[in-house]
Design a protein around this nucleic acid. Structure first.
Lengths: 235, 235
DNA sequence: GGCTAAGATTGGCATAGACCAATCAGGTTC
DNA sequence: GAACCTGATTGGTCTATGCCAATCTTAGCC
């Protein structure tokens, strides 16, 4: 099995930070290159993967540091509630408006292209750091949505309490992607880092699609939980 | 918003392959660098991300080609059946043996460290390409497991039919990771490409943990489905 | 004491180039 | 005709280097 040279440096760096507390500073890139007798380019490739895995943080002008472990568990996949396990959460609305459905949105929502739909764009935060960028599309007529939603904060709660629409099922599609410059900016991460993209279609009792949402999560900071079937008797 | 130069080349390459059929060959890296008036290094960085996203395939000595779209949908997250949607599937057993539980496995299975557990290592294939590498740990005493399992092929089916143990619930943890040389070799992919790692804990009616499995999927080829709640009335 | 300017340090980005390894096409040899 | 060799082509890996941008430290000044 061929092991690239940068990968061996990666292993050595892992040994170096083994047991170190988050926030501990690593030697500079130039020093690591010197110490490992290789080029700075190769060292940077090793560091880049460790950053992508959430093991290190790099800050221009300051240095490279041991990162906090991935601790945030999201149970987005498992329930219809919109909150996270444990951490205090808030969500910042970037945009809420009505617009004509583009072909993809129309297909997902089961309406005609061009039909007006609500578009809600948010940034979810856990603690103080950005967690996800979400864009939700909702069909139908929801008078005063902005006011009702602002009052409650939760989309599902608003749909249920203000409009009598209850989500009873959903289909999630999960895949990996890489951060574009726009996504990197919103999520406070770097271009090219791995993301988790989740597309959710949710329906009510009639089988009518109530919502289609595309969520983008930082892959280096978060981990997802999905519980299916019966809850264990103990625990 | 800062857009790195390689990212602009990435967009240009996407335009270049827009509408091209899978298998179409791109210009060589040296030619792209020349045409875009940049260095081969920068072009390669753009190509690397497109490969990681599953848009391109690169083969040393042959060239760079438009990849098949991510078509394989896996519904691992949604059910206890072990098969995939659509494609013919098989699984190759790499190893099946009894070994003492290491601390992590013991904690997940709820047994003491050092206790003997079954360890089943497989490669799942969809069509002819490797899909996932799975290592399952099963506690308890399952006499003749190898024979029973070989006869049926499915672990859940074997546990149910041969040992009267039925899985009624599971907890999945999903996160991104990067391919190690060993994983890249098994999955037929490249070192450093994004993967999806799913760790499943499954229990029976008593709440006893029956299985703990770590699965590693290629992020560039596959997409996951999870259905929760009620199935829609129509569709 | 507090502000500012200058310099050093650190990571970020892009380049040019050398050499290796796999592949393929064409010619040669048997 | 089949097998083999050879050279050209293509992607794979690594190096060395230059300059930019953010940050921190220090010295100087008021």
């Amino acid at each position: 099995m061929k092991v690239p040279k940068y990968y061996r440096q990666k292993v050595r760096i892992l040994e170096l930070i083994e047991g170190e507390r988050p926030g501990t500073m690593l030697p500079t890139e130039r020093e690591l290159a010197d110490r490992f007798d290789t080029s700075r380019t190769t060292v940077r490739q090793a560091l880049a993967e460790l950053v992508a895995e959430g093991r290190l943080d790099r800050v221009q002008g300051r240095g490279t540091f041991v990162a906090e472990p991935k601790i945030v568990h999201v149970r987005q996949l498992t329930s219809f509630s919109e909150d996270l396990a444990g951490l205090p959460t808030d969500s910042v609305v970037l945009d809420l408006r009505v617009e004509p459905a583009n072909p993809e949105v129309a297909a997902r929502l089961g309406v005609d292209a061009g039909e007006p739909v609500y578009r809600l764009e948010r940034v979810r935060r856990a603690g103080s750091e950005p967690l996800a960028h979400e864009t939700a599309y909702v069909p139908g007529s929801l008078p005063d949505l902005e006011r009702e939603f602002t009052r409650r904060g939760s989309l599902y709660e608003t749909l249920r309490d203000a409009y009598g629409q209850r989500v009873v099922g959903a289909d999630d599609e999960v895949e990996t992607a890489l951060a574009s410059p726009a996504e990197a900016e919103i999520l406070g991460t770097e271009v090219g880092l791995p993301l988790l993209v989740i597309r959710r279609t949710a329906w009510n009792r009639d089988g009518t699609v109530m919502e289609w949402t595309r969520s983008v999560f930082r892959g280096d900071r978060f981990r997802f939980h999905a519980r299916i079937g019966e809850v264990p008797a103990r625990v």
